[in-house]
């Protein structure tokens, strides 16, 4: 496979073995562009190991014994070894931007490393997209180290979409960072990206096209919502919007006494 060929039609995860040596309980998990997948399960159930397998394009050489194929074949080594060729962007709670640079210069540094044209234009587009994900707008002349946790995550997601142009984005527990998760999901569909969320957030899990349930180091099952959760999801989305209203009020120092009157608008 040519490493320059980033036309990824699918990523397929083949089962490994459970801790007791038995084969995992699924045939394969397929990720296609434009699709969202959530990985759920208790702490220590193997969620991060699954993400690691995807990121490393495991070929039975990780602890889980899983295999990850690209378009049905083992991907070229550059996919794993060279971050600029890798079709996967991984953003975790640990991922930080350390450079002491203004946002636009930071992005321009990345754009130049990728040898893309229209440096300033691409940087602006990236900031614009990042601003769709957060309440407090990011400005290009602010130092990257001065951004909030949510702004930093938003910028990294936008960077992965616009500059890295990664077909697959792995987001490991980013929900605590205060970004608009529905906007992120809407965006990845718009840009035909596949996103894998490792998450404890019920709304994200339910909004995804597939739900991979982990337990005891292995994939327990893969749930494909068939519509029967729709009514529950609708209720939860409404609750989420109501909480958003209350959150904004609290953050701006206002009383929430009248919030209940606004709840009707959140339907």
């Amino acid at each position: 496979m040519d490493p320059e060929d980033i036309d990824i039609r699918e990523i397929r995860i083949l089962p490994g073995t459970k801790k007791n040596g038995e084969k995992e309980g699924y045939d394969n998990i397929v990720i296609v562009p434009g699709e969202t997948i959530s990985i759920v399960g208790p702490t220590g159930s193997g969620k991060s190991a699954l993400i690691n397998d995807i990121e490393m394009f495991a070929r039975k050489d990780t602890v889980t014994g899983r295999t990850v194929l690209v378009n049905g074949a083992h991907p070229p080594e550059e996919y794993v070894r060279d971050p600029s060729k890798k079709p996967i962007a991984s953003i975790t709670q640990n991922t930080k931007c350390l450079a002491d640079l203004p946002v636009s210069e930071f992005l321009e540094m990345h754009i130049k490393a990728r040898k893309m044209g229209d440096v300033e234009d691409v940087a602006l587009k990236t900031i614009e997209l990042a601003n769709e994900f957060v309440g407090e707008k990011i400005s290009g002349d602010v130092k990257i180290t001065g951004l909030s946790g949510g702004q930093t995550r938003a910028l990294m997601i936008a960077d992965a979409v616009v500059i890295s142009n990664s077909p697959i984005i792995l987001l490991d527990e980013v929900e605590n960072a205060g970004i608009y998760k529905d906007k992120v999901i809407e965006c990845v569909k718009r840009f035909r990206k596949a996103v894998v969320f490792v998450t404890h957030d019920p709304l994200i899990s339910l909004m995804c096209d597939k739900r991979v349930v982990m337990s005891n180091g292995a994939v327990e099952k893969v749930i494909k919502p068939n519509g029967e959760e729709k009514s529950t999801l609708k209720e939860i989305m409404q609750t989420d919007r109501r909480i958003d209203i209350v959150r904004e009020k609290i953050r701006s120092g206002e009383s929430i006494a009248d919030c209940w009157q606004l709840f009707g608008q959140a339907c």
């Binding site: 962007a89 991922t95 931007c97 350390l98 990728r114 990294m156």
Partner: peptide
């Protein structure tokens, strides 16, 4: 320590 930095810096570091 590649898991600790942003994709952008990782690529630039390599460059």
């Amino acid at each position: 320590k590649i898991d600790l930095i942003s994709q952008a810096e990782r690529e630039v570091f390599r460059e």
